[in-house]
Design a binder for these strands. Sequence first.
DNA 1: TAGATTGTTAATCGATTAACAATC
DNA 2: TAGATTGTTAATCGATTAACAATC
Lengths: 223, 223
Amino acid sequence: MASDEVKKVSLAVIRRLPKYHKCLGELLQKNVERVSSQELGRILGFTASQVRQDLNNFGEFGQQGYGYNVEQLYNEIAKILGLNTEHKMVIVGAGKLGQALAGYGDFERHGFKILALFDVNPNLIGSSIRGVPVHDMKDIIYFINENEVDIAVITVPRENAQEVADTLSQTLIKGIWNFAPVEVKAGPGVIVENVHLLDGLLTLSYRMNESRLTQKLKKIHEE
Amino acid sequence: MASDEVKKVSLAVIRRLPKYHKCLGELLQKNVERVSSQELGRILGFTASQVRQDLNNFGEFGQQGYGYNVEQLYNEIAKILGLNTEHKMVIVGAGKLGQALAGYGDFERHGFKILALFDVNPNLIGSSIRGVPVHDMKDIIYFINENEVDIAVITVPRENAQEVADTLSQTLIKGIWNFAPVEVKAGPGVIVENVHLLDGLLTLSYRMNESRLTQKLKKIHEE
DNA sequence: TAGATTGTTAATCGATTAACAATC
DNA sequence: TAGATTGTTAATCGATTAACAATC
């Protein structure tokens, strides 16, 4: 049964797809018509070889002697990323972070439409943030199922994050994007992407620390 | 000159360090005294072998027949991550995201002290957000140098991000944590960590799309 | 001492890079 | 046609896993 063996695409490749997508979008903006794997690699800091290997995971998008058509490749990658259909999102937690994400235009621009925020705070319920209404947390299950919401963003405090994920797992939601600093689990068929903001800061701190040490070592050596 | 060859630690290892740190912190909280590489790996989803390899990049922290002392290892990793000294941060951009980060307790808890927010908006300048004052962007160079600020967080709109990074490069700042959706560059000696929020969302979208396709394929096959 | 578990070397696996025939 | 650049196979490189002697 070799025919339906799904060639698993590695996470490393997947995490590069948004970079290609963004870069091609910028080229498109500049009215660039075609691009070679070499040029694309140069811009992104990848080798031409890697660019070709990456893209060939998904199909043959190029043409020998020509390269890749920017618009076509942009659209192909959008399709691979699932950006050809509009996604409907809700944000759970209407605190500062929830509000920040609700106002972040980049999401809408890529077809992620934010329908509502949800919160338990009666002072927030009924208000609206940059045109996005804040609803009562009590109504979330009904709302998600009724509006065929795809993706829920969790921006509640750590203590409540798993509980929210459990509630969401009872709905028709397909993806959870979690900003609370815990690894939340969801029901089967629900894809979870955990964001670890602190990790990025600690990595920065490590690199600052390391560069300081390296400089110190250099100095010692020069003496 | 083999003696000062710095064995470069791979990025993959570095990005795991915050996970070890967090996990050990939780074990410490639970008063667990010792932990084996096997147990630590089990919790984090790594192999015991990988745990030992990772840690041995930085020293010999364990003891045969015993494992690792939780508190000691926690402190060692904190030191490696540069968490033994307090870091001073400022946030550039007092919009919703800047405000959200200013109120995020996890940073302080790990020794990252937020001294101030900076903005150009006269309505915000002079106010304070959860005890953190908002200053005029004009004063940022003086403030950073005077207060020996380590790290600057950029939460301004994309258009202004590089300009802010250029300004910061004129100061004694050591690290930049950039949330604007552009890859900012900084002067020599300044470490930059770019956060790509949208990338995470696109990766989630890809995985949702992929799982949908996989299920479709399965169905076709079953028929 | 005996059992456990490390640090470390060797084997395996996977991802990146190089090379080149195919072809536009 | 000649030049360019792909898709793809082979070679290399690096990271993960396995194995085991050292030792607490």
